[in-house]
């Protein structure tokens, strides 16, 4: 009896220690989406190493082109955190909780830019692109899909029939490339991606022209899986919020073309929500 008790205590201790050890060794899995130029390896690898140092845990980045895939991975608990678009955040609000909102140009907002090739000097709004080829980013993108469709709808057009052909390029950057190369006559991309690329790849943005800018939408947020533990959530949130406070973090933010992160509020995304309801995609 005594022996069993001792054994039980030992077993419990062992379990505790392994659990602790497990926690230390289990990587933090972060999903990255094309809401920002997620396919640049070097700066993101620096960010990942920075996170590992701050969290004292391995960090894994999982890059997926399609928002829905990242959302699925979150749902399947293959990811702990993800940087997604405001549309899937609002759409799948029950599966995720807001972790942090990036701040760009001092504000936690971004816009949808309607772009055309720079050779096109005449287009003044999306209404000049009837029966043209249009590049969307992703069906779960706000700035790259929802916003231009909302605009058409407001103008009384049927977005499904308005263009001659549409296609998904599966990233803001590729929408820009499509328009810059002339593959598409027009496209919609996030203002943040446009700004970032106009610094990093000015030859791309020079080949395109911004026609109109949409209203402000809450910036594409960092979210956590609903089931992520409070400790992990806080650690991650702290990391993001404190990035501007050290040299390396500031350098990383500069490469991401962000000022920093704020805790954010769901009210930031009310306009997105209204948009989703208006377009009727919810």
């Amino acid at each position: 009896m005594k022996l069993t008790r001792i054994l039980a205590v030992l077993a419990a201790l062992l379990a505790l220690s392994t659990a602790e050890a497990d926690d230390r060794a289990t990587p933090v899995r972060i999903g990255l989406t094309p809401t920002f130029p997620h396919d640049q390896y070097r700066p993101l690898e620096k960010w990942r190493l920075y996170m590992e140092r701050k969290l004292h845990r391995p960090v894994e980045f999982t890059r997926r082109d399609r928002y829905i895939e990242t959302m699925d991975l979150l749902r399947l608990k293959k990811l702990d955190f993800a940087w997604i678009c405001d549309y899937p955040y609002v759409h799948f609000r029950k599966q995720v909780k807001l972790l942090a909102v990036p701040v760009h140009n001092g504000r936690p907002y971004y816009q949808s830019y309607l772009i055309v090739p720079s050779s096109d000097k005449t287009t003044k709004s999306i209404l000049d692109l009837k029966d043209k080829v249009f590049a969307y980013t992703d069906p779960y993108s706000n700035t790259g899909y929802l916003a231009p469709r909302f605009e058409l709808q407001q103008a009384g057009e049927d977005p499904a029939r308005y263009f001659h052909k549409t296609f998904f390029a599966w990233s803001h950057r590729r929408v820009l490339e499509s328009v810059a190369t002339g593959l598409a006559d027009g496209g919609a991309i996030s203002s943040h991606v446009w700004d970032t690329l106009s610094n990093g790849k000015p030859e791309l943005t020079r080949a395109a022209r911004v026609v109109t800018k949409s209203a402000d939408y809450g910036f594409a947020p960092f979210v956590a899986r609903v089931s992520v533990g409070d400790e992990d959530f806080r650690a991650m949130q702290k990391l993001l919020l404190e990035m501007p406070s050290d040299e390396e973090g500031r350098a990383l933010l500069k490469e991401l073309n962000l000022d920093g992160f704020i805790v954010g509020d769901t009210r930031l995304y009310e306009r997105t929500e209204r948009l989703i309801r208006a377009v009727g995609e919810k």
Partner: peptide, 12 residues
């Protein structure tokens, strides 16, 4: 369907 030079040979 698609061309490598969409400016001179556009889609469709």
């Amino acid at each position: 369907f698609v061309s490598s030079h969409p400016k001179s040979v556009p889609m469709l």
